[in-house]
Each structure stands twice: as structure tokens, then as C-alpha cells.
Simulated scan of single mutants.
Amino acid sequence: MRIDIITCLPKLLEGPFSDSILQRAQNKNLVQLNIHDLRQFATNKHHKIDDYAFGGGAGMVLMAEPIVRCIRQLQSERSYDEIIYMSPDGDRLTQTVANELSLKKNLIVLCGHYKGVDERVREHFITREISIGDYVLSGGELAAAVLCDAIIRLLPGVLSDETSALTDSFQDGLVAPPVYTRPADFEGHKVPEILLSGNEKKIEEWRFEQAVKRTRDRRPDLLDK
């Protein structure tokens, strides 16, 4: 998989992609992440990429021209399955969306900033808009990192145990059941006996029951679906 991220703040993305699972995925050549500085595609001598909104109002807007120049350059080199814009009013990022995108080959992710991007970019170049929640961040960079993490960890070979992703919360429409590790007795608080029984069938039944109970208690909206 190849993911190209367009941003006006490339340094914000250095940290999330330089450690842990995302770094290992790159080192193993399972994913290629490319960060493009939007200012490099500005056409003015001051590398200006934003301007005031027509009609007035507070805040600046990312201009269409540098964004489109970057997208077109990337498209001249390869074909892309999706051009995604991270936006508070996009479709909610869910595990189902992450599963779907993990099957793609080439993605462009555009990070918004200030008051967003010129609407003409969204109308004519963006193929999909995604939100990570009903709140506003200073820019789309952290949201893009969340999206990439959710996608990349699903790629074959990224996790040391590939079955791990299949048992994550939301994969079956439920949150995950409680988990325990050593010691079996911690300050008088004991691990449920069933988990020490070695009976895999009974353990799986217990985990499913606990997942349903926890979902009912904490995320009943998932059961409604």
C-alpha cells in the first residue's frame, strides 16, 4: 500500500509514523508513507497557501491551486483508489471503513487547516471525506495519523499475530471483552476461573458473553445496529 499525505504542517506527522507498528510496517516495506509539504506547491514567492474567505468572516482558507497542483502531480505518476479529505463533517471513521480502505492500493489523504479548504477542491477532486469524531482539531494532521494507523495495522504481515486484528473491538460489532494477564491473583483480585480452565470452547463462549454485556452497558448504540 502507498499513502500520500498532503499537509501544510509536515512536522506534525513525523512522530506518529516514526515508532512502533507504523514504523515497522514501513521498515518491512508493507506500506509506503509519503508526506507532501503543501507550501512546496505554492506559486507565489512567499509560498502562501491560504487567503481570506470571500464574503468575510474570521479565519483563513487553504487555496485551491497548491492543493490541486499537488494532487495532479501525484496522479500523473500513478492511479489512486481514493482522495480523502479529513473533515469534521465527513463520514464517521469506523472499523468497517478502516477494513474497506485497508484493501486499497494507493490513497491520497488531504489535511485541512484553518477554516478548511476551498470548496471547489472538495467538489471536484475529493472522492471521500472522513471524520474521526464530532469535534474540531487545529488541523487534519492528527486525524490523518489516526486514519493511517487504523488502516495500516490491518495489512497482512504488519502485526506479529495476524489474528490479533480480527479480535479487536468493533470487528464483530461489539466492544472487546475484558482481558487479564499474570499474576492470577493481584492484591486479592483474581482472574475469572474460566480463563484458567484451558477449555477453549468455554473460554470463547465466556468472552462472547462478556463482549455482549460490555457493549450493552457501554455502547448500546452498537447493539441497535
Rank of each mutant, 00 (worst) to 15 (best):
R2C: 01
R2L: 10
I3G: 03
D4W: 00
I6W: 05
T7V: 13
C8D: 13
C8L: 15
L9G: 00
K11S: 14
K11H: 14
G15W: 12
F17G: 10
S18D: 09
S18E: 11
S20C: 11
I21T: 10
I21D: 03
Q23W: 11
R24E: 15
N29W: 06
L30C: 05
H36D: 06
H36L: 06
H36Q: 02
R39Q: 11
Q40Y: 04
A42M: 01
T43N: 11
T43L: 15
N44A: 02
H46I: 06
H46S: 06
I49H: 00
D50G: 00
D51L: 10
D51F: 04
Y52K: 11
Y52I: 08
F54S: 05
G55R: 12
G56Q: 05
G57F: 09
G59Q: 06
G59S: 08
V61A: 00
L62P: 03
M63D: 02
A64D: 01
A64S: 14
E65Q: 13
P66Q: 09
P66I: 11
P66D: 14
R69N: 09
R72C: 07
Q73P: 01
Q73Y: 12
L74D: 04
Q75A: 02
R78G: 06
Y80K: 04
Y80D: 00
D81H: 13
M86K: 00
M86R: 07
M86S: 04
P88R: 06
D91K: 12
R92T: 07
L93S: 01
Q95L: 07
A98S: 15
N99R: 09
S102W: 05
N106A: 05
I108S: 02
V109T: 14
L110T: 03
L110F: 13
C111E: 01
G112A: 05
H113D: 09
Y114I: 12
R120V: 07
R120I: 04
V121A: 06
R122D: 02
I126S: 02
R128I: 06
E129H: 08
I132M: 00
G139D: 15
L142Y: 12
L142Q: 10
A144T: 05
V146F: 00
C148R: 04
A150T: 14
I152K: 02
I152S: 02
R153F: 07
G157L: 12
V158T: 14
D161C: 14
S164H: 08
L166I: 03
T167P: 00
D168A: 07
Q171H: 08
Q171V: 15
D172E: 09
V175R: 03
A176E: 13
P177C: 15
P178A: 10
V179L: 13
Y180W: 10
R182I: 12
D185M: 07
E187F: 11
V191H: 09
V191P: 02
L195W: 07
E200K: 14
K201D: 15
I203H: 05
I203P: 10
W206Q: 10
R207E: 07
Q210C: 05
A211T: 04
K213Q: 15
K213I: 13
R218I: 12
D221C: 07
D221A: 09
L222I: 08
L223A: 02
D224S: 11
D224Y: 03
K225S: 10
K225Y: 04
K225H: 11
